[in-house]
Nucleic acid binder design. Structure first.
Length: 706
RNA sequence: GCCAGUUUAGCUCAGUGGUAGAGCAACGGUUUUGUAAACCGUCGGUCGCCGGUUCGAGCCCGGCAACUGGCUCCA
């Protein structure tokens, strides 16, 4: 199991670094060899960071020449020379001044002095804490700023290969320059490296995109449907049905109620929820416009011109109002407000000042003109905007609001397999794992603070129940909390409710501790409305991703004004738990395909049973048809192959299609009232009485036998 | 969105500037079969799209799109 990565961007301590395994040392050393080779070819290269990573290493380099895979051969040739030279990795501890001087003269991450500074190394030196010693590692002519550790000699790198080139921002920050990241891998010897590449080949065969296509589970149709919008073929539809059945049974037993909501909603919904104002807008598809004036261009132009005029007036008024309110006495500033909410607030304030008669006459007439024109604008039909929903919660909140609620209604658990649409960046799309249309195993639990721990635990129990069914044993719960420095200001990412953040985070942390669930705390990654727990899993081929989620929301119910009447006859806002134990169909099925390598257990298998006849003799086919009909009458996905092919051919096709159970029927079976059972991957299990076989199939499906 | 690579028949892939190919699948026949491929034939392509270079472009050049590997982001 891959170790969970260090979640923070903090520097590794020197102690941490000493814990590097031998393989990591080999790879880290190989990164230095890579830099050495690149410098021999391009002496002007500027290096940033070159660490070992999970399956190898990389080195980030800034270089006018674009390194392409065609360059790998000559780079590898230079690397081989360096390894053959078997140079010692020599550690040198230097005074800070020396390091600064060498960075300035371009000596760091270089083969010799250069006429220009080693700019990234200079930056790195300047950021090394005062108390920490500074060291170099030298192999041959190459000297690099490096805390180590390394292998003894370059010759200790038994086998290596450059694998790919990608771009990466310096220090992972979008605002920093983009560097070329050269990836490679290294091993103690050739045999181990070959084993690794063989493993990669095997992994490719389990890729859900490949198996999904081969088995006919889903199709992508970027030209017609659009990128990231999978089409579920009948076989995928069958898996979806089974997952929904499982979720519905489980949720019904746990006291959930099912609801259905539309796929879109008016702009107001998302202005209220905060999705549009708070940094979520770019994840939503752009709005659909409904406009009465659509076919009246001249009216429309008139409105547009008036609209521009109003906007101009408004910005003038707001600029003045901003000065008045923020410079004025009494600290009425509300720096937490953004966008439309801030405008609304400023307008209210300036009207108050006017009503008190304290407004400068010039500004007052500007305000009056704005109000008149704004009024005129509102007299005209306005376009309305609809958005595809990116989340189900706002709709569920409106269901909560649709009826008066009492404390007796709580906890209220609303469940829906809701379809959401998210405008993921084009580079993010990835098979079924990252898509733009997604079906969430969603539910929202509205509860009181007292009920929170029990509800939260029940959700966690549900996760564990599902994981057992699917045989998922590698997972970790990531508890994401907020960053107090990002509650306000331009880079605000979280709703500005410091008290509530603290309270709910403590509540969740305590619940996690009490339940003894294995978790890691991840700072700064909460949802904008509250802390969350993501369940991270690893597919069998080592792909890591968030499968399920469990989030606390203390903010959005308040924004929607959701209340229930409590025992003491006061109105209170409920807490809301968002939870999606099966995540989305898209990601979950993508995961399951890789998890099972397409060899689904009987209950999930798209084609559960295929009946194969030996020959197409009429009596035999009739007997086989009876079996298929009997299975289908019990909702078993059974298909038939009654053609004239040889039985070996029929079996081969069924095996390749990963049909779970094959029932082979020849004259011998028919006479004895038997069927011959063959299970995918297990070979022939021999002939058994028909009734017995059917009963066992039904039982295995019912139990969801693994 | 950014960097790099890729795109030829439904699928897997050949094809180095001179008449677009193979296997599987599909379709039509022949074959009557006992646990991973019986045989013969037929169909199938504006070589991702648009433009350029050339007497001539699947191949060389440019733009766009999609996909793949990463980066940033996330269920």
């Amino acid at each position: 199991m891959p170790e969970p990565e260090k979640q923070s961007n903090e520097r590794k301590t020197l102690d941490d670094r000493q814990k590097m395994t031998e393989l990591e040392r080999i790879r880290h050393s190989c990164a230095h060899v890579l830099a050495t080779a690149i410098l021999r070819l391009w002496p002007e290269a500027q290096f940033a960071a070159g660490p070992p990573v999970e399956n190898g290493f990389y080195y980030d380099v800034d270089l006018p020449h674009r390194i392409a895979p065609e360059d790998f051969e000559k780079i590898e040739a230079e690397m081989k020379k360096e390894i053959k030279a078997n140079n010692v990795f020599e550690k040198m501890v230097v005074p800070r001044e020396q390091a600064l001087k060498d960075a300035q003269s371009g000596r760091l991450a270089a083969l010799g002095e250069r006429g220009f500074p080693s700019k990234f190394k200079l930056d790195i030196v300047q950021n090394i804490p005062e108390h920490e010693p500074i060291s170099y590692y030298k192999n041959g002519d190459f000297i690099d700023l490096c805390a180590g550790p390394h292998v003894m000699r370059t010759g200790n790198i038994g086998a290596f290969k450059l694998t790919s080139v990608a771009s990466a921002y310096y220090k992972g920050d979008e605002k920093n320059p983009q560097l070329q990241r050269i990836y490679g891998t290294a091993f103690k010897n050739k045999t181990e490296m070959e084993a690794y590449f063989n493993m990669l080949e095997e992994a490719k065969k389990r890729d859900h995109r490949k198996i999904g296509q081969e088995m006919g589970i889903f199709a992508m149709d970027p030209d017609y449907t659009g990128p990231g919008l999978p089409l579920w073929l009948p076989k995928g539809g069958a898996i979806i049905e089974e997952l929904e059945k499982l979720a519905k049974e489980t949720e019904f037993a746990a006291g959930y109620q099912r609801v259905r909501t539309p796929h879109l909603a008016k702009e107001k919904m998302y202005l209220t929820s905060g999705h549009l104002p708070i940094l979520y807008a770019e994840s939503m598809f752009p709005p659909m416009e409904l406009d009465e004036l659509k076919n009246k261009p001249e009216k429309r132009d008139e409105r547009d011109q008036l609209g521009e005029k109003v906007e101009k007036l408004k910005s003038l008024v707001l600029a003045e109002a901003d000065n008045l309110v923020t410079e004025g006495e009494g600290s009425t500033q509300r720096t937490d407000l953004v966008g439309q909410e801030r405008e609304k607030f400023l307008l209210e304030k300036i009207r108050e000042i006017r009503d008190e008669g304290n407004l400068d006459p010039g500004l007052a007439s500007l305000l009056a003109e704005f109000e008149t024109e704004h009024g005129n604008l509102l007299m005209m039909p306005q376009p309305t905007y609809y958005y595809l929903k990116a989340m189900n919660c706002p709709h569920h909140h409106r269901i909560f609001a649709a009826e008066p609620r009492s404390y007796r209604d709580l906890p209220l658990r609303l469940a829906e397999y809701g379809t959401c649409y998210r405008y993921e960046q084009s580079g993010e799309l990835f098979g079924l794992m990252r898509v733009r249309s997604l079906n969430m195993n969603d539910a929202h639990i509205y509860c009181t603070e007292e009920q929170f721990a029990a509800e939260f635990n029940a959700v966690n129990e549900m996760y564990l129940k599902y994981f057992k069914i699917f045989g998922i044993d590698k997972y970790i719960m990531r508890f994401s909390t907020h960053d107090p420095s990002r509650l306000t200001g331009d880079n605000a990412k979280f709703v500005n409710e410091p008290e509530l953040w603290k309270k709910t985070e403590d509540l969740v942390r305590q619940t996690l501790i009490d339940s003894k669930i294995n978790y890691v705390e991840v700072p700064n990654e909460a949802a904008f409305y509250g802390p969350k727990i993501d369940v991270q899993v690893w597919s069998v081929i080592g792909r890591e991703f968030t499968l399920a989620t469990n989030q606390v929301d203390f903010a959005v119910p308040k924004r929607f004004g959701l209340v229930y009447r409590d025992r003491d006859n006061t109105e209170k806002t409920p807490l809301c738990i968002h939870r999606a134990p099966l995540g989305t169909h898209e990601r979950f099925i993508g995961f399951l395909i890789e998890h099972y390598a397409g060899n689904f257990p009987l209950w999930l298998a798209p084609e559960q049973v295929r009946v194969l006849t030996i020959g197409d003799d009429e009596a035999l086919v009739n007997y086989a048809k009876l079996i298929v009909n009997e299975l289908r009458a019990s909702m078993v996905r059974a298909e038939s192959d009654f053609g004239t092919d040889k039985i070996n051919g029929k079996i081969q096709r069924a095996e390749q299609a990963k049909v779970h159970t094959m029932l082979v029927i020849g004259p011998r079976d028919m006479e004895a009232g038997n069927v011959s059972v063959r299970v995918h991957g297990k070979g022939s299990l021999g002939a058994k009485p028909k009734a017995e076989v059917i009963t066992d199939i039904l039982q295995a499906i019912k139990e969801r036998r693994p």
